[in-house]
């Protein structure tokens, strides 16, 4: 009973299960969906299997997110240390400015220098992913009350010790909210990468749109949506644990 209640309180488990089941069985399921579409529509996507598409999509967003998170945290740390405080305003404004730039425009601008495929997509993902992490990191670090910092300094923490033991644990819940936003946006944005030739769950969507095949569009869309929701819910669980621990 208790186990059932525990599972019921964690939607990530059943949304995740649905995502996994659909990914593995889409090719078997697709031939039975003919009644949804105009007669003659090809139902089974043939360029790559869905497990392959999911793996490529996960690899692309995962790698880009890792880079984005690393850069974002580094920028937030820099902007809140004595040496970088002078640049904090510039970074804030740069973040706001970059966010107004549409992802498609970034892709279009990246192609001439980086070529087609995964590379320009990864570049755009990193660019977009850095900003929420940097913003949340700065907000989190600035949220640590001044008396706490004064007491930490007065107690004799080294700057690194203060950062590691006091500032980062207290900033963690806010920082992690930014990481969650960044990763979730990345999963959605990666689909656009298929317009410049990256293999992602966006491939069936783009191919479906250009080839007039609504079955491909539906399959890709459902899986991308489930993927994003699963990851978002999983990160929400981590965030909840962090908030509980950071009190």
């Amino acid at each position: 009973m208790a186990a059932a209640a525990w599972i019921a309180r964690r939607p990530v488990l059943w949304v995740g299960a649905a995502f996994l089941a659909l990914t593995l069985n889409m090719d078997a399921l697709a031939p039975h969906l003919g009644f949804l579409f105009p007669p003659g529509t090809r139902l089974v996507y043939s360029r790559a299997s869905f497990p392959e598409l999911v793996a490529a999509h996960a690899l692309l967003t995962g790698a880009a997110s890792l880079v984005a998170i690393t850069l974002g945290i580094a920028a937030a740390l820099f902007a809140t240390r004595p040496m970088g405080r002078a640049y904090a305003g510039t970074l804030d404004r740069l973040g706001a400015l970059a966010q107004t730039f549409p992802p498609v425009a970034v892709l279009a601008l990246a192609v001439p220098s980086l070529g087609y495929g995964a590379l320009p997509t990864a570049f755009a993902l990193v660019l977009y992913g850095v900003l929420p992490v940097m913003g949340a990191g700065m907000a989190g670090l600035r949220s640590v009350p001044a008396p706490v910092l004064e007491a930490a300094d007065g107690s004799g923490f080294s700057p690194a010790g203060r950062l590691w033991r006091i500032e980062l644990p207290l900033a963690a819940p806010i920082l992690f909210a930014g990481i969650r936003t960044s990763v979730t946006i990345g999963i959605g944005t990666a689909t656009i990468g298929s317009t410049v030739g990256a293999l992602t769950l966006g491939s069936p969507i783009i191919d479906g749109l250009s080839g007039g095949n609504p079955a491909y569009v539906l399959q890709g869309t459902v899986l991308v949506a489930l993927f994003a929701v699963t990851v978002d819910l999983a990160l929400a669980e981590v965030q909840r644990a962090l908030t509980r621990r950071a009190r």
């Binding site: 009350p145 008396p147 644990p169 009190r247």
Partner: peptide, 12 residues
């Protein structure tokens, strides 16, 4: 030892 009026205990 250093004590301040606003205390500044580490909340976590």
């Amino acid at each position: 030892g250093y004590v301040i009026q606003s205390v500044g205990l580490f909340p976590h």
